[in-house]
Every structure is written in structure tokens, then in C-alpha cells.
């Protein structure tokens, strides 16, 4: 594993976007950043700027009002980038499934790398999801090397 790739795995900066969740999952994301769970141990920083972010955490279902914002934020993130759908709503639309104006899970708009079910998700799950996503990134990189 090269130095650059190691750095990529050690320093995932997070952009959090709320697509219209009930705020339950958002609060759990914030909880994950607090001293008790201390996401910064893994180099995770909540950066708030798509141009510097590596991981997009989306909560809530995609809907007709904000899908273009989600798409835009995703497009403004430089490669390599990962998307994590946090919570049942973000995965499938959840309780909002088939509601008017709701498109369903966020994978209708942007490609999702890791799904985290739960209503609301637990901070441990979020941490686990980031680790999974990073493993995926590492795996991708390795398979590219093999080719």
C-alpha cells in the first residue's frame, strides 16, 4: 500500500447533507463526532465543503425539491469520493416511501457505496460504515493495481 493510498484511508473528510430527514440520524452523526465516540481518532473531520470532502453522508430520502442540490454537491466533490446513505430513509425512502414528492432512496440520485439501515442509526454503525467505505476504497485501489 503506497503512502498516498494510506493517507487516503487515514484522512476521510466528511460532508454531511440532510435531504429532509427527521433529524434523528443527523443528531446521531453529531453524536459520533463528540468526545464519547471521537471520530477524529480516524482522521475524520466534518468539513462542510464539498470541494474538500471525501465522504458524503446523506440522511433522509431524496425528494423532488432537493435532488438537484444533492447531485450538485456530489459533482463538486473531487475523486476519489464515497457516498454513505445514513438511515433507512436514505437507503430506501423509509416511512416516506411512495409519498408524493419523494423519489425514494438517495441511490436514485447519486451512486451509493455503503447503506446504513436503522431508524435512527447508532453512532457505532456510522463509524462502522465509514470503515466499510474505506475498505471498499482500499479494495478498489488494490484491484486496480492488480490489473
Amino acid at each position: 500500500m503506497g503512502l498516498i493510498q494510506k493517507s487516503q484511508l487515514k484522512s476521510p473528510w466528511v460532508l454531511h447533507f440532510d435531504c429532509g430527514s427527521c433529524n434523528g440520524c443527523d443528531i446521531e452523526i453529531l453524536a459520533a463526532l463528540t468526545p464519547k465516540f471521537d471520530l477524529e481518532r480516524f482522521g475524520i473531520v466534518n468539513i462542510g465543503d464539498p470541494k474538500q470532502a471525501d465522504v458524503l453522508l446523506v440522511t433522509g430520502p431524496a425528494n423532488k425539491r432537493n435532488h438537484r442540490v444533492l447531485k450538485n454537491l456530489y459533482n463538486q466533490m473531487p475523486q476519489p469520493k464515497l457516498v454513505i446513505a445514513v438511515g433507512t430513509c436514505a437507503c430506501t425512502g423509509g416511512v416516506f416511501h411512495n409519498c408524493p414528492n419523494v423519489l425514494g432512496g438517495v441511490d436514485n440520485v447519486v451512486p451509493v457505496d455503503v447503506y446504513v439501515p436503522g431508524c435512527a442509526v447508532r453512532p457505532e454503525q456510522i463509524i462502522d460504515a465509514v470503515v466499510l467505505a474505506l475498505n471498499k476504497l482500499a479494495g478498489l485501489a488494490q484491484s486496480e493495481e492488480e490489473e
Binding site: L3, I4, K6, S7, K10, P35, E40, G43, P80
Partner: peptide, 23 residues
């Protein structure tokens, strides 16, 4: 009252940023 990142975390950050797609 947290653990905090490794001491060389800033270098990880910078190297990662350097390798990202240039926007």
C-alpha cells in the same frame, strides 16, 4: 477528553489532498 488523531495526521491530510482529482 478525547483521544485525537495520530501525531502525523496533518501529513496524511496533505498527501491525500495532493492526490485528489484537481478541481
Amino acid at each position: 477528553n478525547r483521544m485525537g488523531p495520530p501525531l502525523i495526521q496533518p501529513f496524511y491530510d496533505v498527501l491525500k489532498l495532493w492526490a485528489k482529482e484537481p478541481y
